[in-house]
Design a protein around this nucleic acid. Structure first.
Lengths: 347, 347
DNA sequence: CTTGACGCGCAAAACGTTTTGCGCGAGAAT
DNA sequence: ATTCTCGCGCAAAACGTTTTGCGCGTCAAG
């Protein structure tokens, strides 16, 4: 099939060891022979078999990525960035989707491990403990968790995430500044740190106007459907709400649909703020006000950290928390000046 | 580190060959020894090193996927489906993004090849010939191209795509039935078969009302930005257009924004039809009428075909063309009953 | 002339599997 | 009894690299 190092060696009239050294530069080789070797290699179109190399070095130059769903814009954005960073450092990315199913997730980790990935980028999303993940981490393979600071993540894993609580607070402040005092919140599945932290930030930020317990919902999942169901219930039971915070954009999109189906206009009747700033959020109408996660940076930093860990340029586990920012679009407006109230205020 | 086949053999008191046979079932092994072996393997937590196996068999159980951009909902949908299908057949997916850059694309193919992928799923998007791709195909590695029937695809590659021309025709018919006669079209970069075919279908389907040459635009790219720029130009110069076909949803989204910025309401002033039916299209407002590609099926069939090719269950290159369907949402309405015209018609 | 140092290249081991030819022993057939 | 057959398991080669100890020759220094 394809030429091996042996044929290059024969063509150049040297041993295979010399070829390896010349090509890798791990030991000096005289100019003349190096030239002979490189030209022989080029002539034959030689490319080293990475499998064979990996057997020796124990390095596959491959990053594993485990996501719940690559079709989700949040994850695909993250993975896109990670792949880019990995590629520029000579690594490829193999990924697996776990669909929030713990059994599938465990299997996926094992398969990835069997492929001898050098590190794993773990985008969890399920709260159940993953034995396989622990086992992987125990072998010394770097694991860097993204986004979700699950308690089930191995102790020696690294973490790259954002300031979720700060984001929630930003959302609350924004709504308060617009004059809203009747707030509602929809967060993700209880048990997930992001759900907890974003909600916590929001209630803290809302201070005295923090939503009453009845005005908070935990959605089944961070999905459009989850958001819609939660919003439908919430908006029906608590019709006075004038502003709603959703702990991610997909749920906000669901809430948008729910509001529409209840004949509540956004933003006139209901201001809406999301979290993530996936690219769709700028496209819907009204374009969504949201808390932006630096998706590209998250993915990039995670990949680079993983590689640093692999190559020994970083040592212990690290945790990095990136900042978020408020992006104001058109789904939030000042509280409707209700006739009576405004009149009263003006006197 | 992790136990090797040798340790399992010692533990079970047999040779490594017997372990291999017992575990793979490629040769019969007596019940008693098999039991000893499997229990020894379980006890030690043995998992075969796939790298070593791949060296011998020449199979990595890995599919390579090359996409322009995994963050694009069209590609991520496709890849999601492909990965799912691959996983159920015991294959993992390694992917690379080429960003429509021919040089990057060639490099990516080489890297994938170096990793000894068993087959490549190629989602091109660039019209430039790819030497590396040809070289890969020449080695006998199955290549299945998706979506775009580029002429630069190797002859012995397979193809899984949709009835682009039929889709264009569907779009035209729909608009005609709504009474539109003043049509415009924005297609993708000239040179791409999808651009050509979808436009061709559209003009054919429009029959005598087919858009005049001045009412057709070739966007720079199948992106929101590309669609916006083309639409801006088209709608300004040809203000009479009442219905616009865009050769993909992203461009339609761009056109939507363009229309808005020109104060033309969709669908009241302008009906809009897209192509693809990516998940965003249902979320924007108005939800987009579009030609649906069976994304999940495309990805799945491509992966399965690739695996069949690898395993010899399929032989020659195949080409499959899947059907598309019209999905009517809210971005298309009957032609506005213009006062004068309607009055005249009624007399 | 001897010794040391050093640059250069080679041989061989190692990585962990799969694969295949062969030997051994037991039971069946002659 | 002898031969045949056949089931079972073993030994060894092979895959294509990287790595390392060593030998050879040359050149400078003593």
């Amino acid at each position: 099939m394809r030429p091996t190092i042996r044929e290059v060696a024969r063509e150049a009239g040297v041993s295979i060891a010399t070829v390896s050294h010349a090509l890798s530069g791990k030991r000096p080789v005289s100019g003349a022979t190096r030239k002979r070797i490189t030209s022989a290699a080029r002539r034959l179109g030689y490319r080293p078999n990475q499998l064979a190399a990996a057997m020796i070095t124990g390095r596959t130059q491959t990053l594993g990525v485990l996501v719940p769903d690559i079709a989700n814009p949040f994850f695909s954005g993250l993975v896109h960035a990670a792949e880019g960073a990995a590629a520029t450092r000579g690594y490829t990315v193999v990924f697996s989707t776990a669909e929030l199913d713990p059994a599938l997730e465990a299997r996926a980790v094992e398969v990835l491990q069997d492929k001898r990935i050098d590190a794993l980028l773990y985008l969890g999303g399920t709260e159940r403990e993953n034995k396989a993940l622990r086992a992987l981490a125990r072998t010394g393979t770097p694991v860097v968790a993204l986004d979700e600071a699950l308690p089930t993540i191995p102790r020696n894993a690294s973490l790259v995430t954002v300031d979720n609580e700060g984001g929630g607070r930003l959302a609350a402040r924004h709504l308060l500044e617009l004059g809203h005092t009747s707030l509602g919140a929809i967060t993700g599945p209880s048990g997930l740190p992001t759900s907890r932290d974003r909600l916590k930030g929001f209630t803290k930020g809302a201070g005295e106007h923090k939503p009453h317990r009845r005005r908070v919902r935990y959605a089944d999942a961070y999905t459009i459907e989850g958001g819609r169901a939660a919003a439908l219930d919430l908006l029906e039971r608590e019709p006075d709400i004038t502003a709603l915070f959703c702990a991610n954009d997909l749920m906000a999109l669901g809430a948008l649909e729910a509001a529409r189906s209840l004949d509540r206009r956004v933003p006139e009747d209901l201001s809406l703020v999301g979290f993530d700033d996936v690219f769709v959020s700028a496209l819907v109408s009204p374009p969504l006000t949201t808390i932006r996660q630096p998706l590209a940076r998250l993915g990039k930093e995670a990949a680079e950290l993983a590689i640093d860990l692999i190559e020994g340029q970083a040592t212990g586990p690290e945790r990095r928390v990136l900042p978020v920012e408020l992006v104001v679009r058109e789904s939030t407006v000042p509280r409707a000046a209700r006739r009576g109230v405004l009149a009263a205020a003006n006197e």
